[in-house]
Nucleic acid binder design. Structure first.
Lengths: 126, 126
DNA sequence: ATTTATGCAAACTATTTGCATTGCC
DNA sequence: GGCAATGCAAATAGTTTGCATAAAT
């Protein structure tokens, strides 16, 4: 089961880097399709998933709406505006040992966590 | 726009309480349908949404899979087993002032947060 | 009588999958 | 040439919505 270097794979990786933080699969697809209209949605999804699997990009599963893909720079938390729905990066250190606050783990081995904030963004506040 | 007391609404509320923590819309539907096969899925969704809106139950939007509904007892965080996919309640105090750790809020008014842990449950560990 | 709410089906969003074909290695 | 990967369409999961009808007030 060896991996092959296809142009589509390279395009997906390039688009995620190009789009910066938290792009959706559809945004990645649209970005690539501008110059390569032939690409299939399935191919984009398959490659996003593969690239996330081998750690080339990070998949962020959102509590609502589509999953997001980040070109990995640093781990960070996200905030969603409940008014306009837009997603923001949160300027806060990740808490690596948050799992230590758990009293009874019931045999669960914790492997990580995500925090999602919600609120109202500056523009929607008025 | 006043609200009416329908049997369906009462049944949805009762089923959420009955099923305890983190029931999905489909589980609520199935539970009610056992005794009232006539109920519509749309009605269940509409009532879950309405009841959550007026604070009678709590909606927990999951990063993956269907949304969950809790009969409100106390706020708590959740953990998902990456092997079997099951959802667990986490035995840990909520951090009410977690938002204070954020450096630059960029004008965002924070209204709350959710934490989702992931890992491997006791059964899947072996 | 009014008008909210229901049941049903169709629509919708996000994603996955089956399959014949293409094209890396 | 073999088999991973593609493009396409159909399938799936979860949820929302339009509409005629029913029923709460």
């Amino acid at each position: 089961m060896d991996r092959r270097n296809t142009i589509q794979r390279a395009l997906v990786l390039a688009a995620v880097k190009e789009l910066g933080s938290h792009a959706t699969a559809d945004e990645v697809y649209a970005e690539i399709a501008r110059k390569h209209p032939g690409i299939g949605r399935g191919t984009v999804y398959r490659n996003l998933s593969l690239l996330a699997g081998i750690g080339q990009i990070a998949k962020v599963e959102m509590p609502d709406g589509p999953d997001r893909y980040d070109h990995i720079l640093d781990r960070h938390y996200h905030a969603r505006c409940i008014s306009c729905g837009r997603l923001f990066d949160v300027d806060m250190d990740v808490i690596p040992d948050l799992e230590k606050n758990i009293r009874d783990t019931r045999g669960f081995i914790f492997a990580g966590h995500d925090i999602f904030f919600k609120g109202t963004c500056r523009e929607c506040k008025k």
